[in-house]
Design a binder for these strands. Structure first.
Lengths: 211, 211
DNA sequence: TAGATTGTTAATCGATTAACAATC
DNA sequence: TAGATTGTTAATCGATTAACAATC
């Protein structure tokens, strides 16, 4: 199987959004130049990215908007959303549960966990907050593959271990900490400090470049 | 001035965290190998990254933890945090205000804005929520350089325009939308769909690679 | 001195951009 | 047919990794 570059994967949601907009605007055909313009990506890049997954366009014509939209839905796994549990039902955790159109991006959060007795048993967004002790059994029973960590940094490594021993294959970490996980575990860090460092650098230096 | 690679900028906060941990553990000296191990980065990469900013180590010895920590504080701008306004005082906006140790990463949010009359006038985290109409004057008066957008996607482009005409130089966008901004504006998108696309791809494919 | 580790150059790897034949 | 646009190969660019002389 052909190895997909990581930057390519990251651009797919941008294409998807642009296509949604084009579709709502009633466009039936879109060129790589138009799609790139809308997504903020070079047109050659657009074509290259798409060909990793197949041939979707017609030379001299362009791409059929709804066909490409469906193809991207398939590729991004929006048809059968991944199920996840979220640990840490604080403000960040709640914000993630509520993330605009989150379900639309292929993720379904099925259970929340926290240590705080005040939170346990409460409903957040239609989901009950369970005590951490039940994490392992629930993850195992439901066969959950993704664990989302939105705890304070100090707790995150311990939670990661619990999630892994409960059987998740991927961890989406929002705690500002460098987690250690075995190599077979897929780890993605969503780290605001990274974004901030970039912004702050371009602000201080005499730069014209995009962050 | 030497151009700093973007990935290098993104790794600085990881080094910073590792050094904080080392410092708290009482370590006085750390090698690039140890620092890399802790930050999840190759040791050659660590040395290369640091030399963009100066020479901080001693051959045969390593790096002085507290010296390097201070240097990184300087580089990351943690000494004089950037001031920002945040538009969109919903759950995501509040979560960002409360982001653990956020101030420690060099950002100070000084005002919140929203359109919702129910939110306007309320206090969030010690900050008052102002009506959108006051955005321009407040940003101008305080000379704010960073605007954080945590509105729904539909509103984001309009807010971006307002922020730019009010004089911000950088936009940190959390709305899932491809914003159009003039080239001199520094734009950073914090896009959960990007992370999710990556995770979801590695989950579905037979992959061992890290996201 | 012998062992360790930096800073830096060179080699490798991977991603982006340019160019264009094939196709509609 | 003439004009447009894809898919793909080749050229360029940029970042990572390897290697090692200089230094402690």
């Amino acid at each position: 199987m052909l190895e997909i570059p990581k930057p390519t994967l990251g651009r797919l949601p941008l294409y998807y959004r642009s296509l949604l907009a084009a579709s709502e605007a009633g466009l039936e055909i879109i060129s790589s130049a138009e799609l790139g313009e809308s997504a903020g990506v070079d047109s050659a890049q657009v074509r290259k990215d798409l060909t990793y997954f197949g041939q979707f366009g017609r030379p001299g014509v362009g791409y059929n908007v709804s066909n490409l939209l469906m193809a991207l839905e398939q590729i991004l796994g929006l048809r059968n959303p991944n199920e996840a549990v979220l640990v840490g039902a604080g403000k960040l955790g709640m914000a993630i549960c509520n993330y605009p159109g989150f379900a639309r991006y292929g993720l379904k959060i099925v259970a929340l966990f926290d240590v705080d007795p005040n939170k346990i048993g409460q409903q957040v967004d239609g989901l009950e907050v369970f005590p951490l002790e039940r994490l392992e059994s629930i993850v195992k029973k439901l066969g959950i593959q993704i664990g989302i960590i939105t705890t304070p940094a100090e707790a995150a490594q311990r939670i990661a271990k619990m999630l892994i021993s409960a059987g998740v294959r991927a961890i989406w970490n929002f705690a500002p900490v460098n987690l250690k996980v075995p190599p077979e575990i897929i780890l993605r860090n969503e780290d605001l400090a990274v974004g901030l460092a970039t912004l702050s650098h371009y602000l201080s230096a005499e730069h014209r470049t995009k962050a």
